[in-house]
Structures are given as C-alpha cells and as structure tokens.
Design a protein around this nucleic acid. Structure first.
Lengths: 151, 151
DNA sequence: ACAGTTAACGCTACAATGTTGCATTATGAA
DNA sequence: TTCATAATGCAACATTGTAGCGTTAACTGT
C-alpha cells in the first residue's frame, strides 16, 4: 500500500488556499506536462479543457502556486515565465532551453555538480544550470537545417 | 610596447559598422561597468553623460553589438535583458543574480565544471550557470534584514 | 573638399507580457 | 444558512521590446 499522490484539490487545500476552478485546472495542467508551461500555454490548456478562465486570475493563480512552493518559475529567454509543478524538494536540477521550439525542459538527472569558488562577499542561495541547444523533437524535425527563430 | 585596447570607435569600425554617437557611448558605458546593464541603465548612463539618444536607437545599437559579438546578452530574472562587453572569447563564465539589488554580476573565475550526462537526443550548444544570492554591497547594507524586493 | 549612397537614426504606433485597483462572487467556516 | 473574506473578473495601466517609415549623417569615391 503506497500513499497515493495528493489530488490537485488536496494540494491546494493543504496549503491553506481555497479550492477554485482555475487553481485546480492549473495544477492539473502543470502536472500533466513534462516541461514548464508559459502563462499562455496554460491558458490554451484550460481552453481546451473548456475551463472558463480570466487572464489575470490565471496570473494570480500561478503566482500563488509559486508562492506556496507548489510550482516553480523559470525565466525563459523570450521573457515569458514558465511554470512547472515542483516534483522534488528542494527544486534542484538543470533546465534545457531549446533554441528551436523555445521550450524549456527539466532535466532531473543533470545536477549542477560544479566546484564553487565564489569570490569573497557573495552569499550563495541557489544555483541554476541552464543548457542551451536543440531538443530531440526539433532535432528530428530538422536534422541540419537552421533553427526557425533562434531569436 | 603592448598593444593598446581598441577604442570604442575602432571596435565598431572593425566590425564594419558606422561609428555613431550612440554606439560609441553605449560601448563606453558597457565597458566602464563591471556588470551587465539593462537597456534602462544604459539609457540613464547616456543621459548622465549628456549624450542625446533615442529609446529605439538604443535597442538597435545594443542588438547590433550582440550580433557582432562585441557584447553579450543575459536574461535577468526580471525579464529585462542585460548587456555586457565581451571580454573573453568564448564568453564562458557564471552569472551572479543578486536578489537584493537585482543586478547581475559576471564571475569570470567561476566556471561551470559540471559533469554532463545529457539524456539522449539533446544537442548541447552552450551551458549557463546562474548563481542566486546576495551581492557584497547588499549584504553590507542589510546584514540580516529581509531583501527589499526579491520579486 | 564635395556629392552620392545608404546605414543608422528618431519618430510614432504597436505587440507581448505582466500588474494594479476595485467592485463582485463564491469558498469554507460558524 | 449565514457570514467573512479569499479569490475572481473586468478595465486600465506599466514595462519591455519591435515594426514601419521618412529623415539624417557617416562613409566612399572622386
């Protein structure tokens, strides 16, 4: 008998928040994805699931999730935040930015195992390793062609 | 007799660009700073130096510098690009994001010496190591107090 | 030194992403 | 059921960056 993973509603309630339509749908959407989603992608996801939602409410739901540690936020290179469900504690892994499709992938297995010799005075809180390149999907799509919009 | 570092004008001309007021001032501003600057910070810098400039022209000057490899661009966590003069080749060092003042510092001496065991299919182009924490200045300013705007 | 070509400028307008204020709704508790 | 208030939903605004386009001025050749 293993403990089942908490439902979206449980997750939200356990953090002292009200269980609302949007929050549940957002958690489900993030949970179903294997990579962090932008606000826009989450919105599209909700639309597809026919969950009515407001742009601002969605932003606030995402912010709330991040605030509660349920989700985390990655700054993409296109100045749009991407949100992903926190699956470990603490959140510690590398991010792969695809210059083809612009997506960000979490690589749980790649740990930033660097030797930090920080100059004096800097107080380290958290390290982030970002890998830039081409993801498997884009690589197959165009094996040698120039990427569509490297920006 | 050592070769003197090229002037801003030389740098620009050597890359086949026209030497204009804005470009020279931008290169000088970036060169004088020990950390990457936002568009806004560069603009403030030019204003201080009483160099007339246009918002859009400034964006284009910065883009051009990046395109020519004279400057590089870092995505801050506040979704504003930061631009710095390229002092090495290739550009390869860690960035320190201060959660106090929001500035980004280049730590030339910290190299991402991680062991990459990339999952199959991913094609690595470039790795970026971002360290989050408090910079020496902010640390002195408020040794234990909560940071002003961690965002 | 001068004239011509065109890169670069400097406007205005627009786009994308996110935030603020505030009246209204509906969640969870009594 | 009732109530307090967390959360919503709307409109307006803020920030960061782009696109279009006529004008200016940096370089080239004479």
């Amino acid at each position: 008998m293993s403990t089942r993973p908490p439902s979206a509603a449980d997750l939200i309630a356990n953090h002292g928040g009200r269980v609302t339509r949007t929050r549940v749908a957002v958690v489900d959407a993030l949970d179903a994805s294997n990579h962090p989603l932008t606000h826009d992608e989450v919105a599209a996801n909700l639309s597809e699931a026919e969950v009515p939602h407001d742009r601002v409410t969605l932003y606030r739901a995402l912010d709330w999730l991040v605030d509660k540690g349920i989700a985390h936020r990655v700054a993409g290179s296109d100045r749009a935040w991407r949100y992903g469900i926190v699956r470990e504690a603490p959140h510690q892994h590398a991010h792969f930015h695809c210059s083809g499709c612009g997506n960000v992938f979490c690589l749980e297995q790649v740990q930033p195992a660097f030797a930090i010799a920080l100059p004096g005075g800097y107080q380290l809180d958290r390290a982030e390793l970002i890998l830039h390149g081409i993801c498997p999907t884009c690589r197959q799509a165009e094996p040698t062609a120039p990427s569509p919009e490297p920006r």
